[in-house]
Design a protein around this nucleic acid. Structure first.
Lengths: 213, 213
DNA sequence: AATAATTTCAAACAACTGTTTAATACAAGC
DNA sequence: GCTTGTATTAAACAGTTGTTTGAAATTATT
């Protein structure tokens, strides 16, 4: 009897290839035959090891989340002894690299971005375990930067402002590549992008702390 | 008697229904039969009036762009006699309403957002006519706000920061609905969101004008 | 080595896809 | 009337999809 945690070559190969293909084509356009072909296994293997294409997708999505958080842990951002401005810088830099990594990890985040932009039933399972904690972390950092107690809604809107700047690079990549191809050319460009978002956001946050007229 | 009937020609009905269905399901998952069924026409009509499903999609996408720009023209943002801060406020407010409109227009922008997040061949045609002018407008506004001549890259990054905050509401709607459902509840919430993004961005821009290191 | 359990495989299945076809309905013009 | 061009229709087509099947190959257990 096979469990989901069992270590089997074919099982693992299918999972990894599934992330690739689902990221490239999306759930519907990706075909079981393509996945099996790339994994060099018979076309019936998906239904043998996983129950169905949908179950494979669900597991591939969970796998992608696990991998991104394993390879880019948010340790430094979690360290509450650091000044919150620095924690924000680390968070953004980490997050952006996670999104734009050219290696296999880029595929992970591509799959995740697809799921967020066009959710399937699998998103609900992921939301609580993988997304909410990240959001809570960023919320905590923002609240510390704002210092003075502010309305929850203000914190939430600032969070969306920061997150939106980062996700822009993933969700609207087609536009960026067309308009400003140099902006995401290499690792240095990503670093520079992260620094800009950090500066932009810190500048905005520091202004919001001042009482307005 | 056929002339006095209020129903629109088959061609127009197909185009409108196509926007609906493509926005709801995406290009691949949307079926010709579903579109024809909702339009109450025979399944062969798509190939009769349009050449193919792909050609229908291309025309539906162009139609969606035309509609959004017709119903939410950027007149005020174009008015160079206004102070740039006010033009930015108008631009963002306009853009956000365009994205989050609950009416038929919401479908238009949903279709567009799909295309941007997961481009097909149809995007290239749209890019020059519909997207580039909007970008150029926003670039112009930002450059005026920054006052002092700055590197093009700085302007570009600020533009992406602002655009990203807006598009967040469209591309990551699933997350927002899950975490902060009240933030996009009604027209007032959208207005408040636009005001936040404007304040957030103006605060950041005014800080960036100061010489740093 | 013999038996049992598991894994692999080619083939078939049933449902669905976009598209084509060929017959029909219908209007306008002569 | 008839002809002509357009519009609509049901049916069929050809291809792809996820999934199932049942036999063969492989591995594990005794």
């Amino acid at each position: 009897m096979t469990q989901s945690t069992a270590i089997e070559p074919v099982f693992d190969r299918l999972l990894q290839v599934a992330v690739e293909v689902f990221a490239e084509y999306g759930f519907r356009e990706a075909t079981v035959r393509e996945i099996c072909s790339r994994a060099h296994v018979n076309a019936a293997s998906v239904n043998y090891y996983f129950r169905s294409k949908e179950a494979l997708y669900s597991q591939a999505l969970a796998f992608a989340f696990r991998e991104t958080n394993r390879l880019y842990p948010q340790d430094a951002a979690l360290d509450k002894s650091l000044p919150p401005e620095q924690r924000l810088a680390v968070f953004i830099n980490n997050f952006l690299h996670k999104l734009l990594d050219d290696s296999q990890l880029g595929l992970h985040s591509k799959l995740i971005a697809r799921e967020i932009a066009d959710p399937t039933n699998a998103l609900d399972d992921i939301m609580e375990t993988a997304i909410v904690p990240q959001i809570a972390l960023l919320e905590d950092i923002i609240r510390q930067i704002l210092k003075y107690p502010v309305d929850n809604v203000v914190v939430q809107r600032c969070l969306l402002s920061i997150l939106g700047q980062c996700l822009m690079f993933k969700h609207s990549r087609s536009i960026i590549d067309h308009l400003y191809p140099d902006l995401v050319a290499d690792a240095a460009a990503i670093q520079a992008g992260a620094e800009h978002i950090t500066q932009f956001s810190l500048a905005a946050l520091s202004r919001l702390t001042l009482p307005k007229e």
